[in-house]
Structure formats: structure tokens, C-alpha cells
Design a protein around this nucleic acid. Sequence first.
DNA 1: TTGAAAGCGCTAACAG
DNA 2: CTGTTAGCGCTTTCAA
Lengths: 347, 347
Amino acid sequence: MTMNLKQLSESLGLSPTTVSRALNGYPEVSEQTRLRVMRAARDADYRPDPRAKGLATGRALAIGHVLPTSVRTEIVNPVFADFLSGAGDVYASAGYDMILRMVANTEEEATYDALAKRRAVDGVIVHAPRVDEPRIDQLLRLGLPFVVHGQCQRAQEDYPWVDTNNRRAFEAATERLIALGHHRIALLNGDERMDFARRRRAGHLDALSAAGLTQDDSLLFNAEMTEAYGYETARSLLESAAPPTAFLTSALTTAFGVRRAADELGLRLGEHIALITHDDDLSYLSNGRPGAPVFAATRSSVRAAGRLAAELLMDIIAHPGSAPRTHMLEAEQLDGPSLCPGPHHAP
Amino acid sequence: MTMNLKQLSESLGLSPTTVSRALNGYPEVSEQTRLRVMRAARDADYRPDPRAKGLATGRALAIGHVLPTSVRTEIVNPVFADFLSGAGDVYASAGYDMILRMVANTEEEATYDALAKRRAVDGVIVHAPRVDEPRIDQLLRLGLPFVVHGQCQRAQEDYPWVDTNNRRAFEAATERLIALGHHRIALLNGDERMDFARRRRAGHLDALSAAGLTQDDSLLFNAEMTEAYGYETARSLLESAAPPTAFLTSALTTAFGVRRAADELGLRLGEHIALITHDDDLSYLSNGRPGAPVFAATRSSVRAAGRLAAELLMDIIAHPGSAPRTHMLEAEQLDGPSLCPGPHHAP
DNA sequence: TTGAAAGCGCTAACAG
DNA sequence: CTGTTAGCGCTTTCAA
């Protein structure tokens, strides 16, 4: 039904080899022949069979993303989705496919083994690294090219990664809250088994001590970023004897929970409570007042991270053996609506 | 590096042919031989090369999901993510890969052509069908097996689809609001170029006329489901001369917007305003009161839809030519917290 | 019940 | 610069 290389070459009176070389940009083909071949290929709408190509070359022309059940909730995370979206664009323009595998937690290791063994993919992106991330050693051992979205606790030069500067973003956010007069700031952090959450906490604490503020451990929380987490934590804090005047958190859902708690207690955001989030649609949280900028990993910057990671991976695949490169992206400073004119009437 | 069929067969003293047959369940292999082969394959951790298999059989062992830029925001939609998650499980256990392609709008048609021509996938899932969905005719013409997630305006028996009963869900939700005493209900619908939004509107209007209520066109809205859409619409409605006593909408983000508008006007949900949503984490919206159930396409039911669609597709691939089958899923009726004790003090 | 041989569509030595 | 020859790893006639 569809034209193959042999038929194309016959129609041109050339050998399949020559046509293949012309199409793949080999230098030993005369410019005239190449042009003739390219034209014919375009006219016939010829498309090489990726399987045959893969069989012959050993390459898969595909990048894998493995999602074990434990981080399956990640898939509904807009950060994850935007990252994929950015990476997908790069794959598409490089002629690679993106393959997603949903696996049980117990099968994750075997999946990487299988992907590497059968060369089902040319490389993988590792998502949601934990503090001590075993997949990195596995992938290094397998020799399967990879890029990690996020860092973990090991020498930074050991492996390629792309990350947002979480430490700095939370440090800067805390500095801003302090500058606005807040002394008691609650941190509603993510699950601290994840490395990014550790870094965020570190940034927050750094800013506190730099300002000479004592850190109150009873204001530090970490859990999966649900709405209920934000609501319950904020509610109980706000009703306690020594409530915070500001909340620092990252996910929109959790921020919503904080907002709901404040609403129910008759507090208005921007009057009694301040929020800083790394999400970008800040209008959700404000009372529409103009004011202080917030720091954000916006949707577009997350897409950029996805693009960067994909490009880095393509590069690793094209030039194997080179020293691991890394990319640290600084969170954008957004001039969103004010979330915090400062602590008035702290209850 | 990794064992192939030839090596495996040599180690068994058999021909590749026999080993292939044994592994693929051909009946003409003696049970004894089959057992021996299976054991050896398991011991050696033999895995057939999917590319070679694909080349030889013409099958790809992969299912495609094409995401044109126009529905790229879909990817951050939890419904989309949960659907993929459910489908991915089925693919995995059937030995299929899931391929995601991000393409420009102008390339969508060509992408399906290419996928079909080169048999890069054995089938595709069509997402976010529009009212008049051109992809269906294209895919029928190409002979590429597919399942649509959602319906469109054409004979239901013409093509295979899996959908949630949006019409009935919104009809039931409206019935409930009416039973609670609401007469003026605002519908904040999705983009009505999408078929599901049309069906939701129809269900809503059916319930209104069945109750003998006059429909007020000024209470019918449709747009992309953003928070700002919910906020601005609700805000202006609530400040108008004849405000609604209830809002009916579907996406959490839009519902949040409605909530924010109500908050800013000093209205409390559950006292003056009712919301029904098809999202499942209803605690977001309530004031924590017990009460009326709401109708919902929960995250788990969306995953079930994904599974169903994938199974249907595998079935179509296995038995080509059979009449298109369809699945209508009823939205679950959840006993969530009350969103609407009824219309008091409507301003 | 098993095996030999041909081929899926492409690339990659090796010649010329 | 171009063509010939072998495969890549698997399935599938066709014979035995």
C-alpha cells in the first residue's frame, strides 16, 4: 500500500543504498542525486518505516517516560503535564516518539531493564526523584541515556539533570515575606521524601536565619499537596494560641485549602494572611490588589524545562560519553496581584 | 548482549521456528516442547524484540494518542490524565506501548496519515471530540482502528466510543437543585464547540422544562473552564438585579472562581449559593455540612473509562471488521457534603 | 510435530 | 560517487 525504499529506488533507477544515503544526509552522495531523490521522496510522500530503521540501526527513535504507581498522582499534576508538553515538542521535531509506561511499583526496575535490554527506547526521563534515588545508579549501570527532572542527594556532576532552583525560590519568597513584616511564617511543604521539598525547606530556613529569626518547628509541615492538607493545617494553626501571619506553600490545591480555612474564619487574604505559591495563576489567591511580586515556576517555564531536558537527552544520545551536563532554571519573579500587604490585626 | 530467539533455540537444540511457535501459543507444538521452551525463556529472561516482531507481523504493539496544540491544555486536565492512567494499565498488561504525540494543529491530519501508513501504531484514541468531528471520517477512511473518548453529532452506531453520560448527569443535577427549591440556576458550561458541553446543556434544559420552569438565556454561559470564567461570571451575576440562587458547573477551577466571587460578596456557599460539580473532591466547595448527594465523574470512574476505551480498542484490533461497540458510563452519585441546603435570603 | 528458507524495510560494510 | 551483499530478530509459508 505504501511506498517503500525499494520501490522508490526502482522508480528512480537507483539502488536502495544510494537512496537511503541521500535521504539520511550522507556526504558521499552527489548533490544532484540527492536533490532528485529528495524530490521524488516528497512527491511520493515516502516515509521510512521506523521499525525497519530501528532494527537495522539498533536505535528506537523513542524516548521513554516510566510512571510507577507511586507517582501516578503526578500525572494529574500540571507541572508534570506541562513538562511532558514541552518535551513532546522537542521529540516531535527530532523525529522521536514519546512513550509512556504505567507500571506497578514492583515492576519499575524490571521495566528499565527491559527498555534498555531491548533498546525499546534510546533514553528515558526520570521524574520525581527521591532524596536517595536508586534509579540513577540503575540507569548508569544499564548504560541507558537519561535526564532527571529534579535533583537528588548526590554529586551534581555525576548525572545529567534539569531543575528549577527550588532552594532559591523559597529563600527569596521568605525574604519577601520577612520584608513585609512577617515573623511567623508557616511552611506547608511537599512530601519531604522528595528531594525538591528538602531544598525548598532549606531555602526557607536559610532566609529565616539570615534575618535573625528563630525558626519555630511547629510551623513546618510536609505532606502530599492536597486541598485537605492546606485546609486542615491552616485551620488548626489559625485557631491556635500563636497563629502565623503568613503561609508559604507551592501547589494551587493546597493554597486553596488555606484560603478556605481563612474564609471560614472570616479572615481575608491580603489582610491577615499572605500566601506565596509557585503556581502562576495568582488571581485565584488574591483579593485583586496590586502589589508585591511573587516567585513562580510558571506553566511556560515548566514547559521550557521539559524542552531543555529533552534537548539535553537528545544531545546525550547523539554524543555518548561526554561529561554530564546540568541546567538550573531560576524561578521567575512575577508581578502578580498582591497576596500580602503585610501583617495587620494578626489574631 | 541480550539473548535473541536464535540463541535461545540453539541452547534448546530446537529451530527458531519451533521456539517462536511455542512462545506464541501456536497449537501445533507439543505440550512437552512448549513447557521446555517456556521454562528456558523465563530462565534466560528472554524478551522478543518488539521492532523485529513488528517488522515481521506488521503490527506495532503500540497505541497512539495525538495531542494537537488546540487541545494541549487538555493535558493538564485531570480528566485527561486519569483517562490516560487507566488506559495505560490496560496497554501494559496487553504488552502494548502508549505513544503520545504533541503536534501542531496543522499537522494533526498528516500525523494520523503517517501513523496509519507506516503502521507506527495499531490504533489510536481520539480525545476531546468536537461537535462535528472530522477525525472520525479520516480514521475510518484510513482503516486505522480507533476509539473516541466522548461522542459527537453523528449516528451513534457508526463508530466506537466510550463516554460518560453527560446529558443525564446534568439533568439529574438540575433536578436535584430544583427539588431543593432553586428556580434560578446559572449554568457555567464548557466550550460548546465540544460535544460534551452541548449534551450537558441539553440535560440541564430538559430538567428545567420537565419542571415547567422557564429557561432564562441570560443564565446560560459557555467558555473554557478557567477560574477567571467562574469568578467573573459569578461576580457579575451576583451583583445583578436578578441573581441566580444556584450555580451548576463542572470543573473544579471554575467552581473555585464562583466560590471566590461569593466570598468577596460576603455570601457563604451552602447558605446562598449551590454548586454541583463533576469533580470528586467535593470538600473543596462545601462548608462541611452533611446533606444532598451530588453527581460526579470521579477520578476513579474516569480511570475506568480509560480502561474501558483501551479494552475496546484492543478488541477492535483483535477482531477487525466487527460492528462498532460503544460504552456509556453513568456518572456516580456521591454522598458528598452538602453544597446546597436550598435558597435562603437570595439577594 | 518440527525445520528450512524466504522475507518484513532498512542500513552498513565492502567493493568498484 | 554508486551498487552488491549481508544482515538486524522475528514470523511464516512450505516441506518433511
